[in-house]
């Protein structure tokens, strides 16, 4: 595992200012996520999981300390640079899918590719490959409202992987799904992790979902309280 392809948080503190109060969210956090890891983040509501995810994904800046990804300090980049960096390196998966309702599945997945210089034909190939990877070929002309929640989330995953980023961040990706759809999504994430070596950081409330990850991290009141590596997991098997 190349060190430069890992995510490294050093002494990260994040506080929010509301009026004259300073709210500490993350304090003195150290974390290394090697490339190819499937990390599950758990913890009570308000413990700072989303905040941590945002820092790793380059959506937010640490108040103190540094976030180093690919050997690059995200804190030192301008808004334009970090935005470009995200478009090349990170795929986002949300609890409520966040597809664009007025665009078809195909168009939703194509959206991140519009930021590249790829030709129309190449874009089309990539979109179809991504849709195939999530098992949605034949659904490309459907609008989000014509799809089930599980299918919508799969379109969202296709959108996240279509630019071939090394990192996928998922904030409670199964939080709004029934058990069966949730299992499918988790299997898909596992497959992307194992088959395509995607680094995945996933926030979840669901202990069963967390079992699918290769490493489990517990966060409480802005501190890491439990760190467990589960190297011996078999694909699709929820043990322990």
């Amino acid at each position: 595992m190349g060190k430069e392809h890992s995510i490294e948080l050093r002494n990260v503190t994040k506080t929010y200012k509301r009026d004259e109060f300073t709210i500490p969210v993350l304090t003195d956090l150290d974390l290394v996520v090697p490339e190819g890891e499937f990390l599950a983040l758990m913890g009570p509501s308000g413990s700072g999981k989303t905040t941590l995810l945002n820092l790793i994904a380059g959506l937010d800046n640490a108040t103190q300390g540094s976030v180093i990804v690919h050997g690059q300090d995200l804190g030192g980049m301008s808004d334009g640079e970090i935005t470009r960096w995200r478009s090349e390196n990170v795929g986002f998966i949300f609890q409520l899918y966040n597809l664009i309702p007025v665009l078809t599945a195909f168009e939703n997945v194509e959206l991140p590719l519009l930021l590249t210089n790829l030709s129309k034909r190449k874009r089309r190939d990539n979109v179809m490959t991504a849709l195939r990877a999530v098992g949605l070929e034949g659904r490309e002309d459907h609008y989000p409202r014509q799809l089930s929640g599980g299918q919508e989330q799969r379109v969202a995953i296709a959108r996240a992987i279509v630019t071939d980023p090394f990192l996928l961040v998922a904030d409670e990706p199964t939080g709004d799904l029934d058990r069966k759809s949730a299992e499918e999504i988790l299997s898909l994430l596992q497959q992307l992790n194992k088959g395509f070596n995607k680094t995945i950081v996933m926030v979840t409330h669901d202990p069963e979902a967390a079992q699918r990850a290769s490493r489990l991290l517990h966060l409480d009141k802005g501190k890491l309280v439990h760190d467990e590596v589960r190297n011996n997991l078999e694909e699709g098997v929820a043990s322990s």
């Binding site: 959506l59 935005t83 995200r86 478009s87 090349e88 991140p112 930021l115």
Partner: peptide, 16 residues
Amino acid sequence: TTEIAVLKAMGFQRPL
């Protein structure tokens, strides 16, 4: 609002 935030997260620059 959310949609625009998603686009920006995805890499849409401010001028765009």
